[in-house]
Amino acid sequence: MIVAKRKPIDEIKEMLKPYQKILVLGCGSCVAICMAGGEKEAGLLATELAMAFELDKTPKQIDNLTILRQCDKEYIEEVKDKLKGYDAILSIACGVGVQYTAEALGGEKILLPGLNTTFLGATVEAGTWAERCRACGDCVLAEYGGVCPITMCSKSLMNGPCGGHEKGKCEVDRNRDCGWVLIYERLKKLNKLELLTAIHKPKNYGAVKRPDKIVHEAYQTPQITQIKEAK
C-alpha cells in the first residue's frame, strides 16, 4: 500500500489561510490503513484545525468527509455535489488522490495536500509501516531470494554487499538492517546461495516511462477487423 504522513500543522494552516469554508477529504484505502488519511484522521485534523484557527482569532468552517478511494472516479462522482460549496478541499489522500480528485472535479476546485506521500510499504506491526518496493518497473526479486536490493539496500546496490555493514546493520544508518545481509540470510534459508555468484548488469532505470500509463489489453480501443476483412 501507499504509506503517507501528515504534514506539519503549521504548513497546513499556512495553505488554508486564504480560505473560509474548508473540507478535509479523507481517503478510506491505503492512507486509512497507515493511519494518516482515513475517516478518523479526517475527523481529528478537522477538529484540530478548527480549534487552531479559532485560537488565532480567524475562525473557519472546517468539515470532514471520507470516501472509499480518491483514485477512482466513481467514488468522487458520488460526493461531487457535496464538494461544490467549499472554497478549498484539503485532501488527506496520497499524491495520487489529491491530483485525481482535482482532475475528476474538472480542475475547478482548489485541492490542497494534507499529507506527504512517503513510500510503498507493508504493515510490519500494528502502527509500524516499512518500505518494501520502489516501483522500479523491472522486478528483480527472483534473483535475490525475494529481498529487493533496490529498496532494502540504502545504496540500491545490484551487486553487494558494499562492505560497510556491521553486525547486520547498514553503515548509512546503524539502526537500519543491511539489505545485503537480509538477502544473504534469505538465500541461505532457501538453500540458493549460488545465486550470489551471479554478476548483475546495471539496473535499467528506464523501464518505467515517467509519468507512465498502462492500458490493459482487454480495454484497448477495439479495432473493427471483421468488417475490414469483408470489404
Binding site: 478518523k40 475527523g43 481529528l44 477538529t47 484540530e48 478548527a50 480549534m51
Partner: peptide, 11 residues
C-alpha cells in the same frame, strides 16, 4: 477512548 473524543472535549 478515541482520540477524537478527547480532542472534541476540548473543542
Amino acid at each position: 477512548v478515541d482520540p477524537l473524543h478527547l480532542l472534541k472535549a476540548f473543542q
